[in-house]
Design a protein around this nucleic acid. Structure first.
Length: 505
DNA sequence: GGACGGTGAAACTTCAGGTTGCCTC
DNA sequence: GAAGTTTCACCGTCC
């Protein structure tokens, strides 16, 4: 831990003194940022939301005169067509300021992190993305707010989280100490912050085993690995965990485990190993073994609940189209958080539901209708993607940023792969070819007609579309066209490469 | 007089994050 | 609960 930064009074008083000393020109955050730069140092500014991170960075950058044109150019051209977000980021970076959150493309995040480490970028305004894991120390950490929106309204963040953010301050190699500065609005608030975060204790750690999804997954994998063969084994195992230590009530744990076992059995992921008829259902000695399907569920790292939902959905006999599958995988715990429906979108989504209701692979969503509606919006977003909407269009229509698009696509690929595997093991092979096709389309973001073209290395969404609209629709078309003409369409190097691939068959 | 643009206050809307599968030239 | 965004009334300017 860096010396200096744990001394609470020094710290917070410093912030107050600082505000007066820096003559409060533009508000505390901007003043502190500019002061950091004038000292030749760097700072991380933690804010509460993605829009805030962008706004704050922009405000600071307006008052800076960096000249990082080259880096800005790189950041701008990470995607095939820059989105609004890219332009905004490039504008800030030009001045030596950046914003950083999960909505950025991975490549952009790396450029920013490297730029900061190299000392070119002076200030990063970020959401808690940068709080943990990342090795990005700065001289100063500025925490604009220690409250965050939760399910129960605005609430103070845990002390542990505060420490993670504050702990970014202090660069072992360059500074002998670091400064973590919380912005307090009033004296009363200042006292509150000191009490809670500087004098307060870190919260107790609670075992996450208590959460049922984790418990389900755990029990199944224990049985699958052979570590646990009976309810008795299971109880023995769990009585030694931190979960049991905290929970204390072994009877309750047993009830919970029995329920989980029952579910796994109903879903066909485990079965009684022998002479089941002679052993009563809640006998401690009843032996369990994993089924083939259950084993695969473990290997796929799926929550058994999700796995069962997928299997049940895949079984459904109805007219299935892309949207059917997309909605099925969107309405899982794994896909959360789902895209949320804005007020202005409500009617549009209702219309969409009416349109595709008959093709859905699930029924009985009445208890959590809002969640269901969100799954429709999420599936819709995927659908637009495979119909060749650009990142910019998705940002406009669904408010999904490029980084989030990639993350969601990665999840969807995993879940579709899981659907394929589960179909194979559940004798539901009629789904396999459609799912496989869908995976390819999601990977590239293309309509079905471009599929033959993207098989070739060097051809993705953009080039495939260009070729197609010029009448080249498949490998045969590519073979027929002359090299010169092909070069004009997709560039010299790529054209040569493609021809080579075709020759090799 | 009417179109247009700028300004500011009120009303409205939204709010962090990120491991897992497989294959591979 | 707070901050960012949108909306809308109001005013001044120019043609």
């Amino acid at each position: 831990m860096t010396p200096g930064f744990r001394n609470p009074f020094k710290l917070l008083d410093f912030a107050f003194v600082m505000q007066e000393k820096i003559s409060q020109q533009h508000g505390p955050v901007i003043d502190l940022a500019l002061d950091t730069i004038s000292k030749g140092k760097q700072a991380l500014v933690f804010v509460n939301s993605k829009p805030s991170a962008e706004k704050q960075a922009e405000e600071i950058s307006k008052r800076c005169n960096g000249k990082l044109d080259e880096l800005a150019e790189k950041v701008l051209n990470v995607l095939s067509t820059p989105t609004k977000q890219c332009k905004r980021l490039a504008g800030c970076i030009k001045k030596g300021i950046a914003f950083h959150h999960a909505g950025l493309d991975q490549k952009q995040k790396e450029l920013i992190e490297d730029g900061f480490r190299a000392g070119e970028i002076k200030i990063i305004c970020c959401t808690p993305t940068l709080a943990a894991g990342m090795d990005l120390p700065a001289f100063r950490t500025i925490l604009t707010s220690l409250k965050r929106y939760t399910n129960h309204g605005m609430d103070y963040i845990p002390v542990l989280e505060y420490e993670q953010m504050a702990g970014r301050a202090g660069r072992p190699k360059y500074d002998s100490y670091g400064e973590a500065i919380c912005i307090a609005g009033t004296d009363a608030q200042k006292e509150e912050l000191i009490e809670k975060y500087l004098n307060g204790e870190v919260e107790h750690i609670y075992s996450k085993l208590a959460a049922e999804p984790v418990l389900r997954t755990y029990v199944l994998s224990l049985i699958s690995s052979g570590l646990v063969r009976s309810k008795e084994d299971l109880m023995k195992f769990f009585s030694r965990t931190f979960f049991a230590f905290q929970f204390k009530d072994l009877k309750k744990i047993e009830e919970l485990l029995v329920r989980v076992l029952g579910m796994l059995k109903d879903w066909g992921f485990v079965k009684g190993s022998s002479n089941e008829d002679f052993v009563s259902a809640d006998s401690m000695n009843e032996k369990y073994i994993v089924t083939l399907l259950g084993k695969r569920v473990v290997e796929l790292y799926l929550d058994p609940l999700t796995a069962n939902k997928l299997v049940e959905g895949l079984k459904k006999k109805c007219e299935k189209n892309e949207f059917s599958y997309l909605q099925l995988i969107s309405h899982t715990l794994e896909m959360r958080p789902l895209l949320r429906i804005k007020k202005s979108e409500y009617e549009e989504v209702q219309e969409k539901i009416a349109l595709i209701e008959e093709n859905l692979l699930e029924d009985g969503f009445f208890d959590e209708f809002e969640d269901f509606e969100n799954s429709i919006k999420t599936a819709w977003f995927f659908e637009e993607w495979i119909n060749e909407s650009s990142e910019e269009q998705l940002l406009e229509k669904f408010g999904v940023r490029p980084g989030e698009i990639k993350y969601k696509l990665n999840l969807s690929d995993w879940l579709l792969f899981s659907c394929i595997e589960l179909s194979k093991l559940s004798l539901l092979n009629e789904n396999v070819s459609n799912l496989t096709k869908l995976r390819v389309r999601l990977k590239y973001g293309i309509k079905e007609e471009l599929m033959p073209l993207v098989r070739l290395k060097g051809i993705g969404k953009t080039r495939a579309r260009k070729l197609y609209s010029n009448g080249i629709k498949d490998v045969r078309g590519l073979k027929k066209i002359g090299l010169g003409e092909l070069k004009l369409l997709i560039g010299e190097k790529t054209a040569e490469n493609i021809k080579k691939q075709l020759e090799m068959g």
